[in-house]
């Protein structure tokens, strides 16, 4: 059992490292793996890069942060999805089920289209604040409505609808064509603007939230038979739920504010990971994180190369792959029922 876990973790890390290294070489400008190593070694170690500045810039300033942000987003979304599905006992829950992504889009649109903050506030910051506001509204609503799990989900649906409507309204009434296109691209999820500061922020939040979730791994297992069963196994249900909802909402907000709402990773990857590890969260969460990271690295590579030189929003590609997987999940739950 333990050997299998180590094998999965080791194999996953190796696959991730290889994926990142290879993905960075793919693109319109021809870059070799050796160039990647040279550039990374130069930036991490002493001495200057021996690459021409342009090639070095492509590796270190463009493709590397983008690929790493894809890995961090994939990992984070998969972990949030796994936690949400277990906590809300709903196989179709995903990181956006609590309206976080819709709130983020409203926040971003408020900044970009309406000019809230007078230019001092970045799109990312606006999205982050919007995401947290929406999540706060969901918590408040679900508390007022009775605090049970289904009320949390329903409050999330309500918030999602509300903020989507606000976003659409704002865009349709106030934005010009160019802004609309930019906002749309971001709504669908895109890693095109990734910089090192995005990577650092998201990675830091990911590590923190992953640690919190792993600390609750046993507690999450206890939710398998419902909240009352969890309570009789010694879990302080309300407190645990609040801590985990806040942690995952924080991570989702950070990811969405940097890369937009990349759908389906958080819905489908946890199910795939469960098929590998079984339902124990101590193994599920790390494996979900690694598989989500590898998945999104490749999907983003596909998104930026498939109709060169145009770029497809990565959310579109995840959805094109995700929809068949989503149907498969539904099919599986139908058989169980």
């Amino acid at each position: 059992m333990r050997a299998r876990t180590l094998l999965l973790a080791g194999g996953g890390l190796l696959a991730l490292a290889v994926s990142v290294a290879v993905a960075v070489t793919i693109g319109p400008a021809h870059i070799s793996t050796a160039d990647v190593w040279t550039s990374v070694a130069a930036h991490l170690g002493p001495g200057d890069s021996t690459l021409p500045p342009l090639r070095d810039g492509i590796v270190w300033n463009l493709r590397m942060p983008r690929t790493l942000l894809a890995a961090v987003c994939g990992a984070g979304l998969a972990v949030c999805g796994a936690v949400m599905q277990s906590l809300l006992r709903n196989p179709l829950a995903d990181p956006f089920v609590l309206g976080v992504s819709s709130g983020a889009s409203t926040g971003a649109v408020a900044v970009v289209v309406l000019g809230v903050g007078g230019g001092a506030v970045s799109l990312s910051a606006g999205a982050f604040v919007g995401a947290l506001l929406s999540f706060g509204l969901v918590l408040l609503l679900s508390h007022v409505l009775g605090g049970t799990t289904d009320r949390v989900v329903l409050s999330g649906v309500a918030a999602m609808q509300l903020f989507s409507a606000l976003t659409s309204f704002t865009v349709l009434t106030s934005a010009d064509a160019e802004t609309t296109k930019g906002v749309l691209f971001w709504l669908l999820g895109s890693l095109s603007g990734a910089g090192w500061d995005d990577v650092a922020l998201c990675a830091a939040v990911l590590v923190l939230v992953l640690a919190v979730c792993l600390g609750h791994a046993g507690t999450l297992d206890a939710f398998a038979f419902g909240e009352e069963a969890a309570a009789s196994l010694g879990v302080r249900v309300a407190r645990t739920r609040l801590v985990l909802l806040c942690a995952t909402a924080l991570l989702t907000a950070a990811l969405v504010s940097c890369a937009g709402a990349i759908g389906f990773v958080g819905l489908v990857l946890p199910h795939a990971a469960r098929a590998l590890t079984g339902s124990g969260h101590a193994r599920l969460l790390p494996v979900a994180a690694l598989s989500g990271a590898v998945f999104l690295v490749w999907v983003d590579t596909l998104a930026r190369t498939v109709i060169d030189p145009q770029e497809v929003p990565v959310g579109v590609v995840t959805s094109l792959i995700g929809v068949p997987a989503f149907v498969a999940v539904l099919y599986r739950t139908r058989r169980q029922g």
Partner: peptide, 30 residues
């Protein structure tokens, strides 16, 4: 320890997984 009237789950669990849930109150995080 309590056994409810109806135990229901959508999670894919083996019998051993279910029994191992009983160890949760004895385990510490991490």
């Amino acid at each position: 320890a309590a056994v409810e009237q109806h135990a229901h789950t959508q999670t894919e669990l083996t019998v051993r997984d279910v029994v191992a849930l009983g160890r949760i109150p004895h385990r510490r995080p991490w």
